[in-house]
């Protein structure tokens, strides 16, 4: 059928929840510090895990993989999996094994390998003493993350969102509150720290050293209101968000997450009060 007809016909029998709408448990981002450790470094982690209805426990586990996988650590080998922490009770951290890269040739250690992290979101009142008895149905959300470990001289750092720029003029700093008019559309643009866009060296498969610059991108989330497009690309980071028209809506939260494509992440949480 012609594309005109496809465009007319391609609608859904019912609407589906958009990715930006936070109405359930979500793991939005993970931050490792440092973002790209060397063997033997101590790494601390924080997550941006949200749920509009309940408190959460985030169980962190990790493993060393011979090669990366889409679905994380091999659960059939419990000895290979390490418990790294439980947010917010036990801040997760990792002492990167000093011999992690020993099996790599010297020339490959600049590129390094990944340590694998698994995040399991559980209800905040979960009895951790019985964690062994939990099954799939108890999981609210499961996420995976790779931690690049290398001996690179241009190791990655996490990008930081310094502030949000609203409609190009209003600067909102971390912890700030934005007041919006009901049903009004606003431009939201994350502003990065000046050193967020890193230059680094990449050795191509032909052995050529190539200078590169990061190309970060942003994703946006909210507990109310609406986006037409919920992502953007640096340096054109602005998206449009429309405040809810519901007269009962009063306070909501907006998040923006930045990823530098090398494993580094940052985020900004904005509290919004709806007026009018």
């Amino acid at each position: 059928m012609p594309f005109a007809l496809l465009m007319l016909s391609g609608c859904l029998t019912q609407s589906l929840s958009p990715a930006w709408f936070i109405d359930r448990t979500r793991l939005l981002a993970v931050r490792a510090e440092p973002a790209e450790p060397r063997p033997g470094d101590l790494v601390t982690f924080t997550s941006l895990a949200v749920d509009p209805a309940q408190d959460l426990l985030i169980v962190w586990t990790g493993c060393v993989l011979e090669s990366s996988s889409s679905f994380g650590c091999d659960t059939t080998d419990p000895d290979a999996i390490s418990l790294l922490g439980v947010e917010p009770l036990l801040p997760p951290s990792l002492q990167v094994p000093a011999d992690l890269l020993d099996d790599l040739p010297e020339e490959d250690r600049d590129e390094g390998k990944n340590y694998f992290l698994t995040l399991s979101a559980l209800p905040g009142d979960t009895d951790l003493s019985a964690i062994e008895e939990l099954d799939q149905d108890d999981l609210l959300e499961l996420g995976i993350k790779r931690l690049p470990v290398s001996e690179s001289t241009t190791a990655n750092h996490n990008p930081e969102i310094r502030q949000l720029l609203i409609d190009g003029v209003i600067e909102v700093l971390p912890g700030g509150v934005l007041t919006v008019q009901r049903g009004q559309t606003y431009s939201i643009e994350p502003i990065l720290n000046e050193d967020a866009i890193e230059a680094y060296e990449y050795i191509t498969s032909d052995g050529v050293t190539e200078p590169r610059v990061e190309e970060p991108y942003f994703t946006f989330y909210a507990t109310d209101g609406s986006y037409v497009v919920d992502y953007s690309l640096y340096p054109y980071g602005a998206v449009d968000w429309t405040a809810p028209v519901d007269p009962l809506a009063d306070t909501l939260t907006i998040w923006s997450v930045v990823r530098d494509r090398r494993g580094g992440m940052g985020w900004f949480t904005l509290t919004v009060e709806v007026a009018g």
Binding site: L5, L8, S9, T13, Q14, S17
Partner: peptide, 25 residues
């Protein structure tokens, strides 16, 4: 008729809906 042609999932595959076939044209 609705005549679903495909199944569309939401971002985390917890919801699904049918993509309708041709409407009345």
């Amino acid at each position: 008729g609705v005549n679903p042609e495909f199944v569309q999932y939401n971002y985390d595959y917890t919801e699904s809906a049918y993509i309708r076939g041709l409407p009345f044209i």
